[in-house]
Design a protein around this nucleic acid. Sequence first.
DNA 1: GCCGTGACGATTC
DNA 2: CGAATCGCCACGG
Length: 107
Amino acid sequence: MRSSGCFFPEVWNIVAEIPRGRVTTYGLIARVLGSPGAARTVGWAMRAAPDGLDLPCHRVVNRRGELAPASAFGGPGVQRALLESEGVLFDDEGRIDMKQYLWVPFR
DNA sequence: GCCGTGACGATTC
DNA sequence: CGAATCGCCACGG
C-alpha cells in the first residue's frame, strides 16, 4: 500500500485514517506520500475532496498548529468547534498543542 | 506540453 | 520579533 494510484486519493486515504482527537499536518502527509514539498498540493486535495468520502478534514492543520481559513469550512469557528468536540484543546493564540495532538501517518 | 492555481513551508529582511 | 517573499509539487484547462 504505497501508491493506490494518484496523489489526491492517497491524501484522502490518510486523512480518513486520522484518529479522533488527533491532528496531522499538510507537509507531513506530503512527506509520507514521498513529496515533502507538495504540502500545498495536499491542501488543494482537501479543497477538492468530495463530501461523500466523509473526510475529517478538520483534523488537518498547518505546521504551526493553526486551522485553515474559515472560508474552507463554510464559516469561522467551525473547524475549531469540531476539534474541541473531539477533546482537542486550544491555547490563548487559538492554536493546537502539536506535541500533544500531532498524529503521524504510516509510511 | 505550457500556464495558472492553491486549506503550505521555510527562509529572509 | 513580525511580516513578506520565494519555492515547492500536483492537477485542470
